[in-house]
């Protein structure tokens, strides 16, 4: 491995704090040295808010019927973990998100390739998708229930539909904005069309694809929340709707926390993927190239 690769791997320590590469000592020391000072400021205010929240609940200022206290929520979370409710529902939700995202990846990438690689394909695919994309996908919920009932199909399809658009739009843009000078160069090297697609167009559009995937992951959770709360007999959303019937705000808050956590973890996964796939970009370019 060259120095350049080591350099950019090391940088991931400071950016993402991945423990597995912590053996790289110089930047690890830098990271640890910065940690207390930085995080203290960052987490002080949320911590204070939680403390106030707990105090308000304990003193009766806030009715625990409307807002469960943090201690209550932690306790409920622990009970739900122990009796298996949480893992069952979370498994179901994860599976739906995963299935929907996989469908979206296949559909989004295929459509973007069709419209990105040929004019004819663009004429056929792009216009309908651009029209469709302005439609709020959530407005399709009643129609989906009519068509597909209340099983897994409408939920997975809703997730898939919502997350197909960011994947398609970003990859399509990525393919269309490949540097024409590079394409010209492949012609002087007499590369075949398939070689050009494999070696120039696809890797050149990869950064945009990954941006699209990150948006898609975020949207997939949004879709799932709605789908599971409208009609479901399992999943985190269903667990929360159930709790509503019994005025169990503590369970609702546990559900919220789980959704938040899942969103955070999946976003980090895509970030790590992004970092791995784009090692060729020096650090300063990566910084400006990323969103968020």
């Amino acid at each position: 491995m060259s120095g350049a690769v080591q350099h950019s791997t090391a940088s991931s320590v400071s950016r993402f704090a991945i423990p597995s590469v912590a053996t790289f000592s110089p930047s690890r020391r830098k990271w640890l040295g910065r940690l207390p000072y930085r995080n203290f400021g960052r987490y002080l205010s949320p911590l204070l808010m939680i403390l106030c929240w707990q105090a308000a609940c304990s003193t009766g200022l806030l009715s625990t019927r409307l807002v469960a206290s943090p201690v209550q929520i932690l306790g409920t979370g622990w009970t739900l973990v122990q009796d298996g409710t949480l893992s069952t529902n979370m498994g179901v939700s994860l599976l739906r998100a995963f299935a929907g995202l996989s469908l979206a990846l296949v559909a989004g990438i295929s459509l973007a390739l069709i419209s990105g690689l040929s004019r004819l394909g663009e004429n056929i695919v792009d216009a309908p998708l651009q029209i469709f994309r302005t439609l709020p996908v959530l407005a399709l919920v009643p129609l989906f229930i009519l068509w597909f009932g209340i099983g897994e199909t409408p939920k997975i399809l809703l997730v898939a539909l919502g997350s197909t658009f960011p994947i398609y739009l970003n990859l399509h843009k990525g393919i269309r904005s490949i540097d024409p000078k590079l394409l010209e160069m492949t012609r002087t090297l007499r590369l075949s069309r398939s070689q050009t697609i494999r070696d120039v167009i696809l890797p050149g559009a990869l950064p945009d694809l990954l941006v699209g995937v990150r948006f898609a992951v975020g949207i997939s959770w949004l879709m799932l929340v709605v789908a599971e709360q409208v009609n479901a007999d399992s999943g985190i959303g269903h667990m929360m709707m159930d709790a509503q019937d019994f005025l169990r705000t503590d369970i609702i808050f546990v559900g919220l926390a789980i959704y938040g956590l899942l969103g955070l973890i999946s976003d980090q996964c895509v970030r790590v993927l992004e970092h791995r796939a784009l090692v060729w970009r020096p650090l300063h370019i990566q910084r400006t190239g990323n969103i968020g």
């Binding site: 000078k181 070696d199 050149g204 060729w280």
Partner: peptide, 10 residues
């Protein structure tokens, strides 16, 4: 050419 036109990902 005036620009090297190397593929950055290779």
């Amino acid at each position: 050419f005036q620009e090297s036109r190397l593929l950055p990902w290779k």
